[in-house]
Amino acid sequence: MWEGLIIINAMYLSAPLQFVINITNKCNLRCLHCFNNSGNDDDITEKELYKLIMNISQLKPYNICFSGGEPLLKKTELINCTRILKQNNVRVSLASNGMLLNKEVIYELAISGVREISISLDGPNKYVHNYLRGDNFAFTETFKNLMLLNNLKIIDFEPTITINKVNIINFEEFVILMIKNNFKKIGIRIILPLGRALNNKDVLMLNYEDIRYISKIVNKYKNDIQIIFNDSINHLLYYRKGESIMREYLNKKVKVIVDRPLCSKHPEHEIYYLLNYGYIPNTISEDGEEVDAYIIGEFQPLEEFEGVVIAIIHRKNDIEDKLVVSKHPHKYSKEQIQALVEFQERFFDSEIIMS
Rank of each mutant, 00 (worst) to 15 (best):
S118P: 00
I168S: 03
D349P: 00
S355E: 15
D210R: 00
P61Q: 01
I188N: 09
T45C: 06
L192G: 06
V203W: 11
M1P: 12
A15E: 08
S333Y: 01
S120F: 09
N223T: 11
Y62V: 10
K327H: 04
N130I: 06
P261T: 02
K51A: 14
I119M: 13
E172N: 07
N199L: 15
I233Y: 13
K180N: 15
E46T: 02
P16M: 08
K220G: 05
N200T: 13
M99Q: 14
L275H: 08
G69L: 03
K47F: 03
E70V: 00
Y332N: 04
N37F: 13
K86P: 07
L177R: 14
D224G: 01
K47S: 10
D231Y: 05
E289Y: 09
N282W: 11
V90G: 08
S326T: 02
T45N: 07
L85V: 01
E268G: 03
L206C: 06
N167W: 13
I176M: 04
M11D: 14
S120Y: 06
I168G: 02
L177S: 13
N150F: 07
L121T: 06
N89T: 00
S14F: 10
L101K: 08
I161E: 10
L121P: 00
N182Q: 14
Q58H: 11
K331G: 01
G69K: 00
M246V: 04
N36I: 00
C263M: 10
N234H: 12
N282H: 14
F229E: 11
R115I: 05
I271Y: 04
E209A: 08
L101A: 08
I106E: 10
R115Y: 10
D318R: 07
S93V: 04
C27R: 01
P71W: 03
P159C: 11
R115V: 08
L148C: 07
L152A: 09
I179G: 12
L198F: 15
A95N: 13
A110I: 00
S244W: 07
K331P: 00
V258H: 06
M1H: 12
E270C: 10
V324W: 04
T24N: 05
I214F: 02
V218H: 01
I188E: 12
M178E: 06
V325W: 13
Y273T: 01
D210Y: 00
I155A: 05
L109Q: 05
K86N: 11
N22S: 14
H33A: 15
T160K: 13
G123S: 09
V308S: 11
L340Q: 05
P267H: 03
D292C: 05
K331Y: 10
E303S: 12
L194S: 11
G134D: 05
Y238H: 03
R240E: 08
N282I: 10
D135A: 15
F343W: 02
E270V: 10
